[in-house]
Design a protein around this nucleic acid. Structure first.
Lengths: 221, 221
DNA sequence: CTTGAATTGTCACAATTGTTACATTTGAAG
DNA sequence: CTTCAAATGTAACAATTGTGACAATTCAAG
């Protein structure tokens, strides 16, 4: 079932009738791919915006020997490879493969720019999409800059706590393990160590920060 | 020494005279900060573009206890926090502190948009800056998605090798260690293991890929 | 062709994290 | 208030990575 255009983030806060009008003023293409087909090949030039309006695709890196590495799944509505349309490198780094039957709206770069000129809202939406992605990546990467798992967790706890010293964890240990890039029991163990050292008290998801100062120092270890 | 405006990435490929004309048509501000002063506080709303035109600043996370974590250094010419001007979160996540005496051109968000409307080139430059940053972050993050250091290195080697089986490393082990987020001897050790297993031959920076297929399989371990 | 700083190879031991497994507790649904 | 699946606590052992140290090699400058 194809989604409504106004549900696509790029067209957020634009009325359906306006979207139709805007689209009628530019050149674009609708295209459908069968399940399993390759939408984009690694190495292709990214000179068009791909709006996934129906279905699910996956990104894969492909190697000369034919083995593939799955990178991520994306499902409609989604704007593909937004960072490659205007970035320094305009080469798709991955293959995009249709997991289900999928359909796209495809707009050439020059026409995307025309769309920006016609609608400030669409420009702002595009800026928001790509900015939010950069924020997301940046936030994720920050955790990897800490030396030890305990440091990551100390940082996380301080960030989550805000000004309070007592709060409940919003994410499960499984989710935290994925965020930090470690195994689940390691997360629990790190919590335990911080508790043994008297920095926090944790009982299931209820956390008390006992020694905020030392917890902060832990971030640098 | 203040740099020329045309050296600022945002004004790339715009003639100096045109820049002057464009700037005269919008509201903006020049501001100078003394060494050590705080340019932006963590938690401030990011509703303006900060173009660093002279000097160096650092980003720091500050904690309630007063201890700080250095995040990164930035030197002129640099556009600060581009991802926060149009992203979902518009709160500065860090303090920005002047390392030297610094000077900025400050443009409110609404005026930045007007600048985009007046100059397609500037819009493209902004899109390029933020897109390239997302690409950079994405590329860096990819390495953290591998389970082991050997997998990261296998992936790196395949990417660097391209179609050839023989090549020279372009980066030192120190640089690689930083890229992968590990200690330097660990990099050497991982190379050694891959060599002992007969996947590669490495002698200082000269690498031969002996078994590309198994090397690729290593990426999934 | 020297020379010396930078890079790389290597080692032993410490510390951290992964793996597997299972018991316990929680919290939502009935 | 039960019940049960999901989440958490915990343990033992394996595997990986960090640390610090030093020798060997490379490479660029003279």
């Amino acid at each position: 079932m194809e989604i409504k255009l106004s549900e696509i983030p790029l067209f957020k806060n634009v009325q359906e009738s306006d979207i139709q009008m805007l689209l009628s003023g530019i050149v674009f293409q609708r295209k459908t791919y069968a399940e399993g087909s390759m939408v984009v090949s690694q190495g292709d030039e990214c000179n068009r915006l791909l709006l996934l309006v129906e279905g699910t695709v996956k990104g894969e890196m492909i190697s000369p020997a034919g083995k593939s590495l799955k990178i991520e799944d994306m499902q409609a509505p989604y704007a593909l490879a937004t960072a490659f349309l205007f970035g320094k490198s305009s080469i798709f780094p991955v293959n995009i493969i249709a997991v289900t039957e999928v359909s796209f709206i495809i707009i050439q770069r020059q026409e995307v720019i025309r769309l920006f000129q016609k609608s400030e809202q669409i420009l702002l939406n595009y800026l928001s999409i790509i900015s939010s992605r950069a924020q997301f990546l940046s936030e994720k990467l920050r955790f990897h800059s800490f030396k030890s798992l305990k440091a990551k967790i100390a940082f996380y706890l301080i960030k989550e706590a805000g000004k309070d010293n007592s709060f409940r964890l919003l994410q499960s240990q499984n989710e935290l393990a994925e965020l930090f890039g470690v195994a689940r029991p390691s997360v629990g163990r790190a919590f335990l160590v911080l508790q043994e050292e008297g920095l926090i008290d944790i009982r299931y998801r209820q956390v008390e920060i006992l020694d905020r100062k030392r917890l902060i120092e832990y971030c640098n270890e």
